[in-house]
Amino acid sequence: MVLCLLIVSILPARWLTPWSGRIGELASLPLVPLGDGFTAIRVWLEGGGGREDPRTAEVWKKEAGIYRQKAHAAQNEVRRLQQELNILRRFPVETETETSPPSLVSASVVAIDPSPGGEHLVRINKGLNLGIRQGGVALHDQDILVGYVLDEPGRTTATIRPMHSRETRPIKAVIPVPGEDPAATTPTEPLLLQPDGNGWTATVPKEYAVQKGWEVRLSDEDWPRWAQGCLLGRVETVERAESNPNWNELRIQPSNPIHRLRRILVVSESDEPATPPPTEGGAP
């Protein structure tokens, strides 16, 4: 036993790190409750009798004032937006289909197509039984569009195709100018993104305002409404087109490739009946 430990203790770090940390976590689990208790006592012993630094208190007071002002401004903004919303509700522009609530299903990625040159299709652990429908879109972090439901989903599983798969048809997207209020920004000309398996490419006129790192968002009426405006990726390179110096070629890198995620949110068309658009005062 001692000999084994001696051998283990002189193993190179790269051989130890993959497993020794895990064993350490397991071994120290029973120590956690006791450690918590003792730490609480230590903090009490060290902090007991100690008084708050008056300078720190001053900084906290200033910060509290700033946050109070911000909270007040935010309340005013909420009130203003509420008024605008009430005005907008007078215009029933949406159709019945558009007002039907989407079905939101949080799913875990359970398998990824391992073939090196493949599409990296992803299998998730939810299917028809839980409301996933063909044409649903897969989101991550509520804003990043990572894929869409492929074919007819199974009862308990579904297959998701990554957005940047070569088999996905070209997508229309826009590149908002960073830092500007999206509502105040004039909509830019949509680009046509050509997927190539690792990302997308697009060709734009030279005068098109775009820089490396800018966000690319979906703006394609052929896609479901809840996918509109979702983040697809970021501009990785902007290079002059070889065929025409008046055009630039963009390369767009996906923000969060689906095969690196563990959980996604699938948004599909719901089977529930559509709710009528609310009218002013709630009267039908």
Partner: peptide, 29 residues
């Protein structure tokens, strides 16, 4: 041996940057 091993495993013996290292053995032996 048990006491030393628990000491080895309960806290990483060394850390640099974002790496930490748990080495079962030095305290145990």
């Amino acid at each position: 041996l048990a006491a030393g091993l628990l000491m080895d495993l309960s806290i990483p013996a060394a850390a640099a940057g974002d790496r930490s290292l748990v080495v079962p053995g030095p305290y145990a032996i």
